[in-house]
Write a protein that binds this DNA or RNA. Structure first.
Length: 460
RNA sequence: GUGGUCUUAGCUCAGUUGGUUAGAGCAGCGGUUUGUGGUACCGCAGGUCGUGGGUUCGACCCCCAUAGGCCACCCCA
């Protein structure tokens, strides 16, 4: 042991440890989300952190492939690399020989693989939710990590728009229960398709979508420049501006778009969607500027943002707290027939930050026990332990402080762990079996209690 | 991937134009006091100043490289 080199304790870039109190708060969020998911019939699944590179590559574009974490093959990993690739230091060509596995980049591609692979044992329409870490070799920033959690719910194999309605209701209920005031923005991807068709520039679809996605963050003048540089004329950018930027709240009533075949589909679907919701969700708002950057969406799309009109949120800037949409081609990449899917995602890292900022976590969130017994001397530990055991047998969380008997240490422990009650055990207590119960917060004390009295008080 | 900025004890930070043994608070450890307490006081320990080079008689301080944090892009959650 003494020969082990001592190293500074440090985390790998872009990763975090969680303190007990942080885990408790994260679990609080997870539990609320899970309970709502379950109420709507979604079942939890798990998939491995590790997937075959074959499964992962080519699904996220060139940028995405670069951000995949690769796992070096075991053993002599250079053995199978062609000599010419090694000699030329051709990393991309050598990659498939040295890394057959990688860490999952999101939960959606694993879902597609999962659904195709387990078609025979799943009940369709398949409603699942999945909460777990994913990994991206991105450059870290505040709120952006190399390891972070995603929290998704999807319905696979049903085209009914009532799925969209239910998912919207899930969003509304979760954020209401968390106490975060949000606006659920929605749009339809075919509105954008119609717009692109109207200005007749299908080859620019990607850049147009990407630019509309930036409207919230950058001034229109800057976006216009980017569109011009991509090759669009002034007339075309003007058309985009008049339809989308200046008319975002009722774009879907725009005649040009509405009479286009794609626009007509969007209009009909959104009408059905809104009719089913029947004004039951007050914080739902149409926004024609919403497109979602990901290119696999084909139908209704959502994004959840803080409600700027809520006084609580006035001092906070935060990107979207969730997003989702319908996609038609999820399973195609794995050679299965197309199954339509629709899903939502909660940005739990951001939700955590917002709730921390707004002080929305309940004070009772601590996972600590209710009662701490502090032995006055080492000799009383065994007796204190017996008392704690009596509480535990009644289902009451109790702990005996088994460290240093110095009271500074004992009371510091009590405060650090935010334990509600303290009972000191000294000679008097041991002989009389009567205790003083002290409330840590109010410092109220009750004297002469038997252990059964304490049980009764705790169970009130 | 591009650019900017920062890094001194476990944590938060001082540290004079480059000059002898790099400091404080908190946290940790030990002690004194206190039978009803969470206090106060005393002491101890903890640092190759992110890492590796360079300039200099001499570097926490200047230069270069590199790692990590943060910020703005790209992209995204």
């Amino acid at each position: 042991m003494s020969e082990l080199k001592k190293v500074k304790p440090a985390l790998s870039k872009g990763t975090r440890d969680f303190l007990p109190v942080e885990v408790a708060k994260r679990n609080y969020i997870f539990e609320i989300i899970k309970s709502v998911f379950r109420k709507y019939g979604f079942e939890e699944i798990e998939t491995p952190a590790i997937e075959r590179m074959e499964t992962l590559t080519g699904k996220y574009g060139d940028e995405g492939d670069k951000l995949l974490f690769k796992i070096l093959n075991s053993g002599d990993f250079l053995k199978d690399v062609p000599k010419e690739d090694l000699a030329a230091a051709n990393s991309p060509a050598a990659l498939k020989h040295i890394a057959e596995k990688g860490l999952r980049y999101d939960l959606t591609v694993p879902l597609a693989r999962y659904v195709v692979q387990h078609q025979d044992s799943l009940a369709f329409p398949f409603r699942r939710f999945h909460i777990g870490p994913v990994w991206r070799a991105d450059r870290p920033q505040k709120g952006r990590y190399q390891e972070f959690y995603q929290c998704d719910a999807d319905v696979i194999g049903s085209e009914s728009l009532l799925n969209e309605v239910e998912l919207t209701m899930i969003y509304a209920e979760v954020f209401k229960r968390l106490g975060v005031d949000v606006i659920i923005r929605f749009n339809h991807r075919k509105v954008i398709e119609a717009l692109i068709a109207v200005i007749n520039k299908p080859e620019f679809a990607e850049v147009i979508i990407s630019c509309i996605d930036k409207i919230d963050k950058a001034p229109w003048e800057k976006i216009e420049v980017e569109l011009h540089e991509a090759g669009l004329t002034k007339a075309e950018t003007d058309a985009i501006y008049s339809s989308i930027v200046s008319n975002a709240d009722n774009l879907w009533m725009d005649d040009g778009i509405k009479t286009n075949p794609s626009g007509e589909v969007a209009f009909n679907e959104l009408s059905t969607f809104l009719k089913a919701i029947n004004n039951s969700i007050p914080n739902l708002a149409y926004d024609g500027r919403l497109v979602r950057g990901l290119n696999y969406y084909t139908g209704v799309i959502w994004e959840v943002v803080l409600d700027k009109n809520s006084s609580a949120n006035s001092n906070i800037t935060m990107g979207s707290l969730g997003g989702g949409g319908r996609y038609d081609n999820l399973t195609e990449m794995f050679g299965a027939k197309n199954m339509s899917g629709v899903g939502i995602s909660f940005g739990i890292e951001r939700i955590y930050d917002v709730m921390e900022e707004l002080n929305l976590f309940p004070p009772t969130i601590s996972q600590g026990v209710q009662v701490l017994f502090v032995p006055r001397e080492k000799e009383m530990e065994a007796f204190a332990f017996q008392q704690a055991q009596i509480l535990r047998n009644k289902g009451i969380g109790a702990e005996v402080f088994l460290g240093n008997v110095k009271k500074q240490k004992q009371f510091k422990y009590l405060e650090d762990k935010k334990i509600a009650y303290v009972v000191e055990v000294g000679d008097n207590e041991q002989t009389s079996e009567k205790f003083r119960l002290r409330n840590t917060q109010t410092r109220d004390t009750q004297d002469g209690l038997s252990i059964q009295d304490i049980v009764a008080i705790m169970l009130q």
